[in-house]
Design a protein around this nucleic acid. Structure first.
Lengths: 221, 221
DNA sequence: TGGCAGCTACCGCAAAAGGGGTATTTTGTA
DNA sequence: TACAAAATACCCCTTTTGCGGTAGCTGCCA
């Protein structure tokens, strides 16, 4: 079986090194090279045939512009973008520039492996955390690049339960844990536990983060 | 000088009583009656000529629907609506139903007096707090009822200073008072004072309220 | 049938927020 | 120049969060 040739791009050591290890440890992949900037990238892509570009777009020096130029220069290139953010606007722009798949830098090895495989096959792979943010993007914004990507996959991502959603809503409305407990006929301890679990799942550590999550995911008006 | 005839509508005692006092204490106004429900209101408006309807739409039993029916039944009626909320959607709907002016129930006597006068003259009067929320409504949503109301007035409302805006932004980004203090080279006491002043001005009492304010007023993305 | 996820509930402790003040300095402006 | 508003800083105190645990119960599913 032919190995998938992957070019890694980014100027963050942990990212490039980590990707190199992942690729070389696997029998499925083959490292087609690591590049630090746009010039090296174009050079690498024109000299060596590659199947997938795994690029850290959170690095300083990488932007959607560069991505667009590369996509133009190497048509049909499959791109798996890594980023730190999961804001809708940002994701929208990146996917709009022709990127096939989108992961967060915090995704784990299994997710990255799966994403590389799917991307090589031309399928979309989005991190579940990203999908959460993406759900509300008007479909048309993606249509331009949808034709060739009929399949969507998502990694585990964040799964907020119904009860937890309820808690988030009340927190966002300004209720204290005690008030929420009264409203839902729960112990304040339970509300607090839910709150802790939510914050843990979302990787935040205060009320402001909870409210912003609620707003981004339209849990509140 | 002819007094302005005002009908007061609402089933909240403090509102109706307060309005009656305000109207009767003033030489400018004349109480055309107080009504508790829609039937009484229609009855009053058809029997007695009134210039302005001052209505508490936060009362149980009052809705935009009723307002619309009344506007239909008594074309050209000037309406000053009182409500508790200053959410954009809500205000949009209310003004969209033909209401001339919009105050919050927390507005003071001078503001109410001015609003009654302006409304009677066919001018719009919005509480500044309302205007803040309204700024982002697409203009077209109001156009249908704009023709007859060329003038806009606002009461003092809320005036959040630049420094306070800055604090709100940082709070919304999840920073603690201490972190904000470090970032702005301030004492944590100062940040706390700003925070207290903001909450006092906005009539809120926790972080969730601050973040929601920031979101509604587009201080954060 | 065993494990896992979700919901529930509790404990303790430290940190932060919230609410009440007061007071000085800076700044803009009438 | 005098006044008001804003910005700064501090005090005391209570309540709420946030974080570290533990643990029983239910329902699902491999």
């Amino acid at each position: 079986m032919e190995r998938i040739k992957i070019v890694v791009a980014g100027d963050n050591y942990l990212f490039t090194k980590g990707m190199e290890c992942l690729i070389e440890e696997s029998l499925l992949f083959e490292l087609a090279g690591t590049v630090l900037n746009e010039i090296e990238l174009i050079d690498k892509l024109s000299n060596k045939q590659a199947d997938v570009l795994a690029i850290d777009i959170s690095s300083i020096g990488w932007s959607e512009d560069i991505l667009k130029r590369v996509m133009k220069y190497v048509p049909g290139l499959k791109v798996l973008a890594f980023n730190t953010v999961k804001q809708r606007n940002e994701i929208s722009v990146v996917l709009g520039s022709g990127v096939t798949s989108y992961l967060l830098l915090c995704c784990d090895k299994a997710e990255i492996t799966e994403a590389l495989l799917k991307t090589a096959k031309g399928e979309r792979f989005l991190c579940g955390k990203v999908l959460n943010a993406l759900i509300n993007i008007p479909k048309r914004e993606l249509d331009g690049h949808d034709a060739g990507c009929p399949l969507y996959s998502v990694c585990a991502g964040v799964n907020i339960s119904e009860r937890e959603m309820e808690i988030i809503r009340y927190v966002s409305e300004g209720l204290s844990n005690q008030e929420i407990a009264d409203k839902l006929f729960l112990s304040v301890h339970t509300v607090n536990t839910h709150r802790k679990n939510i914050m843990s799942k979302l990787g935040i550590n205060n009320t402001a983060g909870l409210v912003m999550y609620a707003v981004r995911n339209q849990l509140v008006s």
